[in-house]
Amino acid sequence: ARTNDPNWHVFRVSSLLPSPACTASKATSNSSALSVVHQHGPCSPLHARRGGAPSHVEILERDQARVNSIHRKVAAAGASVVDPARASKGVSLPAQRGISLGTGNYIVSVGLGTPAKQYSVVFDTGSDLSWVQCTPCSDCYQQNDPLFDPAQSSTYAAVPCGAQECQELDSGTCSSNKCRYEVAYGDQSQTDGNLVRDTLTLSASAKLPGFVFGCGDSNTGLFGQADGLFGLGREKVSLASQGAPNYGPGFTYCLPSSSSGNGYLSLGDAAPANAQFTAMVTNSDNPSFYYLNLVGIKVGGREIRVPTTVFSTAGGTVIDSGTVITRLPPRAYAALRSAFARYMGQYKKAPALSILDTCYDFTGHATAQIPKVALLFEGGATMSLDFTGVLYVSQVSQACLAFASNGDDTS
């Protein structure tokens, strides 16, 4: 066993699956931080009422839908010329403006209104506008908590049509001097409602008066039982941007290693002392997304052989809280898979799991070992992944390398 080898993870096979009970201890970084839990885990307030968590195959299929929609959005933003040959064949870009929700994996609990009432919302770095379902509602799905009721809040106000926030909204329209918003996600989910403002309570000591968000009165789609969604994208309306004057620009989150643990989301927090940094890249065609430059990958302490142009010509890398599995350019993924498999020869191979094609059966092993995988970013930042970031485990007999290829990038 390579217990002391810094290039290997050695772990008990029994620890691969999450505990069925919530084992979270307080993981927040300070008093204004929100607790982050997995939407379908035992710590989630949505857990008890849910109609059954999605299967691993469903999670991965929805993940692929989110990835496809990110690619479509990027392609649509970059497309300046319509290819007449494609157009004549009836090929067209999708009309959806947003990206698919995926499985909305992580949720936070926030307070809205005065007095504050708590709502469990998905947090998403891939979109900007925050919203909750509101009453009166013409078309709302069933959610975890009672709907947000503007009449019960002394600090609620509608955003008038002439307000800057309304005019800056991509989808803002005016109706009876109310600013109407619409967000259409890439999986056909949609929310429509009034743009409003009210006090957002992050903790007893951290409030954000006048927080602008959507008060959804017509909401359909794959929102599960979440009370809404909070966007942490880069545009002005996002929670990250609105919180900047109070807490400073930026935010930090930590996602727990297991769905039975918890992490945190903290606005404006200083970076941890041990953080390694890489440049945050802006793409004006896709101003919501946080781009960075991935330049290499190490497996078992050795950098895999991939020309740096494979990453640089791939269009960059987006970091996304709502995509489950990291997608790599095909040549990079092929090299990663090959290197990983070379180290895993002692284990029985297992069938593929949806988009994950490199899987192992750890049945009969008390402990197991896998090579460490590290992502290398421009500027020298190295992210040596936790072992829960290397394997996606559906069961002990099917633990898969948690990466996938972007497929045919000429398609």
Binding site: S29, D63, I70, V74, N105, Y106, R234, A240, A244, P249, G250, F251, T252, Y253, C254, L255, P256, S257, G261, G263, Y264, A271, P272, A273, N274, A275, Q276, F277, T278, A279, M280, T282, Y290, L292, L294, F311, A314, G315, T317, V318, I319, D320, S321, G322, T323, V324, I325, T326, R327, A332, A381, M383, S384, L385, D386, T388, G389, Y392, A402, F403
Partner: peptide, 30 residues
């Protein structure tokens, strides 16, 4: 484009340092 998904981000404190236009990764963040 490549996408850095949330599985790989687990246990890292991921800091979006907007003021300095950089993203940081702190191991063992939670």
């Amino acid at each position: 484009i490549a996408i850095l998904g949330n599985t790989q981000q687990k246990t890292f404190a991921v800091a979006y340092d907007v003021a300095n236009q950089r993203i940081g990764f702190g191991a063992n963040g939670c």
